[in-house]
Every structure is written in C-alpha cells, then in structure tokens.
C-alpha cells in the first residue's frame, strides 16, 4: 500500500525539520517503503475484529493531578546553562521566519 516516493520522504523530512541530502533520500525512500509495507499489517487484523477500542496506555489511571503549589524551579543561570547562545537572560535564536500560531 505505501510505495513511498522520494518526494514524500522529502516532505516528511520537512515536516520533521530534518535536513536530508539527496543521497539520504535515495537510501531512505526504499527503506521507509519496506518498513511501512511491513507495518501496514496492523490494518489486517483490526479489520477482521469487531469492537476493538484503541489502547493509548497500558495503565488505566485517570485524574492524576498535582496540588496548585509553587515548587522551586531553575535559576536563570541554570536555565540558560545549556543554551547555544544567550543574551540578556534570554535564549538567543536566529531570526524567525514563520508566524506565531
């Protein structure tokens, strides 16, 4: 069913913000194709069974809440300690092209 093209791989890479080289596209396209074809098997079994709700979690917990109490967090120095670049107590990032959502 999948038959994933080079263009589709390029589109996925873009969605996932992954730079990929032409060479990688050549390698990934057939590999993803094989993997997706193989995993598409999940559709078979489900199609034949009635009344199968999805399980997103193995544990059946609900309503796990925290008290609304302030907890000590990080200092500004700790927060910025791993930053590739920082300025005026903030994380410095390259210019942003897209709009806020």
């Amino acid at each position: 069913m999948p038959n994933i093209s080079r263009d589709e791989v390029a589109h996925l890479a873009k969605l996932a913000r992954l730079g990929v080289t032409d060479e990688e596209l050549d390698t990934f396209a057939p590999q993803l194709d094989v993997i997706l074809e193989s995993v598409a098997k999940v559709g078979e079994v489900v199609g034949t069974e009635q009344d199968v709700p999805p399980t997103s979690h193995a544990v059946e917990l609900t309503n796990v809440f925290r008290e609304d109490e302030v907890r000590q967090g990080l200092t500004q120095e700790q927060a910025l300690s791993g930053a590739p670049a920082a300025e005026e107590g903030r994380f410095r990032v390259p210019r942003i092209l897209g709009e806020e959502q």
Binding site: G19, P94, G98
Partner: peptide, 20 residues
C-alpha cells in the same frame, strides 16, 4: 533563519536510525 538552523542542526545531530 531559525527554521534553517533547526533543520541543519537536526540533520547533523541525529544518526540514520533516528531519522528513519
């Protein structure tokens, strides 16, 4: 741009299995 740097960094930072 930030977008380009993200893509380039993720390309350089992740190996092939993670990318797959």
């Amino acid at each position: 741009s930030a977008e380009e740097v993200m893509s380039a960094s993720r390309e350089a930072g992740f190996g092939p299995e993670v990318k797959r």
